[in-house]
Design a protein around this nucleic acid. Structure first.
Lengths: 217, 217
DNA sequence: TAGATTGTTAATCGATTAACAATC
DNA sequence: TAGATTGTTAATCGATTAACAATC
């Protein structure tokens, strides 16, 4: 008997980056009491083609039904399981500046299953200070806490120039994935995952698009 | 005489999304006193191929020199001009929750040329309250302020369910581009640019990558 | 049953990479 | 000059879309 490849085979990045959008829609539709959704409707609401939707869903361990479409509840469940959204991911935030503090107290992360357990900084002036329900920890505590609380993800919210050094310490401490909130380019070993949040880059992309739209010839 | 196509032709999105990384590197190298950089070195530091770097730079109105490479100062200048990073972009933040407040006071945006001029909310309990140097404005003031201050970009930092309605009001007010900080899917007219910040989606991508790395067979 | 909709194969499109002539 | 490095063309690779047989 062959194993289903769906959960084992690595899903391409292009697909993985769309799955959260399907998850949001499946959840919304299910909450609205809509039980079935077709690839056509999903494609319409997300500005994709039905082909893309069906191809994407074929990567996860879930099947639609001819003539009815996809069960919204089923889709939600399987997408959540595939993405790991059915389990809490323990995170730490490094950097207790404006951005770091904001991320730490932004309730949405916890609501979405990303539990921030500590906030760190290396500035003696802020170590020990309160940030929401957190007391800012000294960076030297990082390895202890990562080990003890099984921290999976480190969120890098420090000044640009400190980003790589902080990333190195997170990797050393045993974190498995990094979210880079800075504009710096960070390098990590292959066993560690890295995603750039690209907020400034997204704003630049917008500024460029606005400029190009201005003279549409 | 033919016009240079570089500033006129629209640069593909895949390329535009890499240009901010080149800009960061060019600036860093220039500040370190390094005057020239080759496509090989840039590729190495950014985990790209030299071919990709040369192809990307060929989209902007700038040329390297055989045997020396690219002038870091020249590259910085032209990239900044191409992306619009040499000019201030006026932004508003909608939503004075934790995330909105944080974005409003995060100095990095201003430092990168994204000047936030006002923060809005529709909750009477927060309207008129101070957020850093801002006083939270009533949403009804949006059209006035967008018109008067020539606001280019609206940053949508409201709860998920309010995202589309807020986007509609920003578009109506005359904003030219939207940065969507929520997980909602937003639809805008073609003349308006939209970029998803995808912070939660990035964390999901990370959680998935961590899970897949765990059993690497 | 007839028709709607999936799942999948094949075709197209676009992005990345390789190769190399031009050139400083 | 000789050799390093660009700019560009051609080849490859991967992602998206189209088409359609299977099926509920």
């Amino acid at each position: 008997m062959e194993t289903k490849p769906n959960n084992v085979t690595k899903i391409p990045g292009s697909v993985i980056r769309r799955l959260p959008k399907y998850l949001v829609q499946a959840k919304r539709l299910r909450q609205e009491g809509i039980e079935w959704v077709s690839s056509d409707v999903l494609a319409d609401t997300l500005a994709l083609t039905p082909s893309t939707v069906r191809q994407d869903i074929s990567h996860i361990d879930f099947h639609g039904i001819s003539k009815r479409g996809y069960s919204t509840a089923g889709l939600e469940t399987v997408l959540a399981r595939t993405l790991g959204a059915d389990q809490e991911s323990v995170c730490v935030v490094i950097g207790a500046g404006n951005l770091g503090r904001a991320l730490a107290i932004h309730e949405e992360f916890a609501r979405q299953g990303f539990r921030i357990c500590e906030v760190f900084d290396n500035n003696p002036a802020v170590i020990g200070k309160k940030v929401g329900r957190f007391m800012v920890q000294d960076m030297s505590e990082l390895p202890n806490i990562v080990g003890r609380l099984k921290v999976m993800i480190g969120i890098v919210a420090v000044p640009h120039d400190a980003a790589q050094a902080v990333a190195d310490r997170l990797v050393m401490a045993g974190v498995r994935g990094l979210l880079n909130m800075t504009t710096a380019h960070i390098t990590v070993p292959e066993r560690v995952a890295l995603v750039d949040a690209r907020i400034i880059a997204s704003l630049r992309e917008l500024a460029y698009a606005v400029k190009v739209n201005e003279r549409p010839s």
